[in-house]
């Protein structure tokens, strides 16, 4: 019996992976570190409000964070650019193969990383193996009003298109897949393809400086693809061969 590797998606998939479908470009020159993306993402994706104690202990659950670094000792401090860090939607993600339960998988339809909350058993191996440290774990039942009565009033603002996660589940940025689905559904009902700029992710939508651009990276004429070809473009930890879908435009 001969095995058709293309049929098994082994060869074809890897070649395809290198390209990807959805992509994001973050211009670090434009980012002001205002955290609007962080807030917008939390609203859009039902990200729990982690209390002070847990957040102070490194358990904040934001899917996007604004990293800031400085050089030098105290009074002579030189700030470097702000660096929004989110799931890089790697083409060859280190987080995926290590999950024993197939809870984090690669969507072959959308070419992004998926976290299937209901399949997650909470071994946290994926988070360990993520070189970007962008996965967040539900350490407690942050969104259960039986456990936290103060959350009851917040429950009305949950996004119905996104699952409300419970304790013991890993989660991460999904490139706002609910918006992707919505746009695709709308386009399909109107009998057309999704157009560039028709929709965007919550973070890109909220960014006042337009530092975040989202779109079809495999369409060469789309805005995100054009920006990704910029000479300033760089990928994070490229040496690991993870094929990130998020491109950063360096300062300069």
């Amino acid at each position: 019996m001969t095995v058709d590797l293309n049929k098994l998606h082994a060869v074809g998939a890897i070649a395809e992976e290198a390209e990807g479908k959805w992509g994001m470009v973050i211009d670090m020159d434009l980012c002001t570190g205002c955290q609007a993306c962080v807030a917008a993402c939390a609203m859009e994706n039902n990200i729990p409000y982690v209390e002070e104690v847990d957040a102070g202990y490194g358990r904040s659950m934001h899917w996007i964070r604004t990293e800031r670094f400085w050089e030098g000792e105290y009074p002579e401090v030189k700030m470097s650019a702000y660096q929004p860090m989110l799931c890089q939607q790697c083409g060859k993600a280190p987080c995926e193969p290590v999950c024993p339960a197939f809870a984090t998988v690669h969507s072959q339809a959308e070419q992004i990383n998926l976290q299937v909350y209901n399949r997650c058993v909470g071994t946290r191996y994926c988070a360990n193996n993520c070189p970007y440290q962008v996965r967040s774990f539900n350490w407690r039942d942050y969104q259960d009003s039986r456990v936290r009565p103060e959350i009851t009033i917040l429950a009305n603002q949950f996004n119905p298109d996104v699952t409300v996660r419970r304790r013991g589940v890993m989660e991460k940025c999904t490139f706002c897949i609910q918006r992707i689905h919505k746009a695709q559904d709308k386009a399909k009902s109107e009998g057309r393809e999704v157009e560039d700029g028709e929709f965007t992710t919550a973070c890109a939508q909220a960014c006042p400086a337009n530092a975040i651009t989202f779109g079809r990276i495999d369409h060469p004429e789309s805005l995100v693809a054009q920006l990704a070809r910029s000479p300033r473009a760089a990928h994070h930890l490229e040496e690991l061969g993870t094929l990130p879908r998020v491109t950063y435009l360096k300062e300069g």
Binding site: V105, Q108, A109, E110, I112, R119, T174, I177, H181
Partner: peptide, 12 residues
Amino acid sequence: LTKLTDCGTCHY
């Protein structure tokens, strides 16, 4: 088939 058996079609 890829679209219809993709985990992300129903779970997100």
